[in-house]
């Protein structure tokens, strides 16, 4: 089954990194939430996430889920962006022995996966090291 509709719904986050900043307490939710998890506020401004941050943790996936099997081995990490938001993403353009907690990374627009040769191509963000 095609995931076109689900993919399309997530475009603001996957393409433009849009989060929701709570008008009450300033907490940024990514992806956006209906109720702020910190103060319960229900009004938000749309903000773009910071494009750079530091790696908090990382791992290397050697046996991936079927949709990512062709990409193994690949690195995945959690980074804290400069605005405090924590984000999980693949880490591209990296030699695995380069991976280090605290390593500066930036967000780059990449192909995340596709639905086979005839399906849609899903784009989004990945981390790449800041060199």
């Amino acid at each position: 089954m095609s995931t076109s509709a689900r993919y399309w719904r997530e475009i603001p986050q996957r393409y433009r990194y849009e989060g929701a900043k709570c008008k009450g307490c300033g907490e940024i939710s990514f992806p956006p939430r209906i109720v702020c998890k910190s103060c319960g506020g229900r009004e938000f401004d749309t903000v773009e996430l910071a494009k750079q941050g530091k790696l908090l943790t990382h791992t290397v996936i050697r046996v991936g889920p079927s949709q990512f099997a062709d990409q193994t081995p690949y690195a995945v990490g959690v980074a804290e962006l400069d605005d405090g938001v924590r984000l999980t993403a693949q880490i591209a353009d990296v030699d695995f022995d380069e991976l280090k907690v605290g390593m500066p990374v930036k967000l780059e627009f990449r192909k995340v996966r596709d639905e086979g040769e005839a399906g849609i191509i899903c784009y989004g963000y990945k981390f790449v090291p800041v060199r």
């Binding site: 990409q71 591209a92 353009d93 780059e108 627009f109 990449r110 192909k111 995340v112 191509i121 784009y123």
Partner: peptide, 15 residues
Amino acid sequence: SPDQDVITMSVEATR
């Protein structure tokens, strides 16, 4: 790389 194509490179050049 396998995760780069005309669209991804165009987005980065435009940014």
